[in-house]
Design a protein around this nucleic acid. Structure first.
Lengths: 222, 222
DNA sequence: GATAGTTTCATACAAATGTTTGAAATGCAA
DNA sequence: TTGCATTTCAAACATTTGTATGAAACTATC
């Protein structure tokens, strides 16, 4: 039975280093030094550097998706199979924001790692990311149950925008804080979640079936 | 008088290569090969690889900001100093989306370069990006003129979300297309702009001064 | 406690990369 | 042309990087 000790030391050290310094300038030698293991251990246990990164990402992604689906299921069960649209979107963006936002010095290493994944973009991860689509479809389905009279196109855009606001907030919370001179409290995680969900919901429920082009034109034409 | 020929050949080749393949795996040797110049020319003309990237980014950023401000000024002049909020946001996100969206094979090299800037994240560029804040403040000011009774915090969030939706659409248009099986027409650039602007405007004008937490809670509590 | 399988280790390898160098070429003014 | 500054060039440099190797250490089974 393999001892796993070296293996998990590498995983832990790698995640911490990537979280702190990004993928760009963390070398295998940095990792093995932090983990107090031999250089060759990475290739022995993981095959290659990319497979190490991939394993980290897959682990955290699965955990995130699991939490999302848990919250979604909870919301749908409470609503007898039909959750409020805001609950659906909250289950989608909540776990990400709850993990990645908040006072910088108390965000967990896994969360900071996932922030890096969002900010940077290494090939090893990009390849895996495509599998995310199947997961997102489950949320489209839940949105459809919640808003049966919306067209699929509207649902897709709504999900896309909700994710966009959430992820960009994770990515750029620093810039927002600086721009607003601290007046936007990005550490109030639940407040941020509520903002993102609210705006996304408004985009979904407002208007109707006419193209948004028309709405916008009407607004600006007068 | 310097001939500039080598210099601009390097800039053109570098921008095209970065646009096509990203910053990650384009080496100086790739660039000088494409530009048909000597390897040492890059360091001679630019000092270092990072300064070359920085010059490319600064050039394109200035052009983008200029276009944004031009559209903003145009809108404000048409409205006697007070543009409709949707016009302000359109001036903010329009130039980016118009440049970076549309059929992939007909987007310009500069636009594709700026997409890369959005997707990847190299230190040389991150350092410069901080200057963007002064530019964004001008849009906050315009938004304040357009919606004088909104609090600054709301304006900051509105701008942040508008940019978030625009940039994420640029970044992830492929995923959205795949998720929606082509039903979301991301090549209809003006349509996308209208969608982004509409959702952002709704977030700004809806509700009132109460915290969005309250709105969301009210929605989901019943 | 011998043996086979697993893990660790020091070290070497091979390739890639940004940068530097010093000479050659070029352009231009006197 | 001569002389001077700018530009180009081939080559080399100095690191850094991920990976491979083969021996040593360890572990557990018989």
């Amino acid at each position: 039975m393999p001892s796993d000790q070296t293996r998990s030391a590498i995983l832990a050290a790698a995640e911490r280093l990537y979280a702190d310094r990004g993928f760009g300038d963390v070398t295998l030698r940095d990792i093995v030094a932090a983990a107090n293991v031999n250089l060759a251990a990475v290739n022995y246990h993981f095959g290659s550097k990319d497979e190490l990164i991939a394993e980290l990402f897959v682990t955290r992604s699965l955990a995130l998706n699991k939490e999302r689906l848990r919250e979604l299921r909870e919301a749908e069960e409470a609503g007898n199979g039909r959750a409020d649209i805001s609950e659906v979107l909250r289950a989608l963006v909540g776990p990400t924001l709850r993990g990645c936002l908040g006072p910088a010095n108390q965000t967990s290493t896994p969360a900071r790692f996932m922030i890096r994944v969002n900010i940077e973009s290494v090939p090893a991860i990009r390849r895996i990311r495509n599998r995310e689509i199947d997961h997102l479809r489950k949320f489209v389905a839940a949105m459809r149950r919640s808003l049966p009279d919306r067209s699929d196109v509207e649902l897709y855009w709504g999900l896309h925008f909700a994710l966009a606001m959430a992820q960009q907030t994770v990515r750029d919370s620093e810039r927002l804080a600086k721009l607003s001179e601290g007046k936007c409290d990005v550490d109030d995680v639940e407040g941020v979640i509520a903002r993102v969900v609210d705006v996304a919901v408004m985009g979904l429920v407002a208007g109707g079936k006419e193209k948004p082009v028309a709405r916008s034109a009407a607004l600006t034409a007068k």
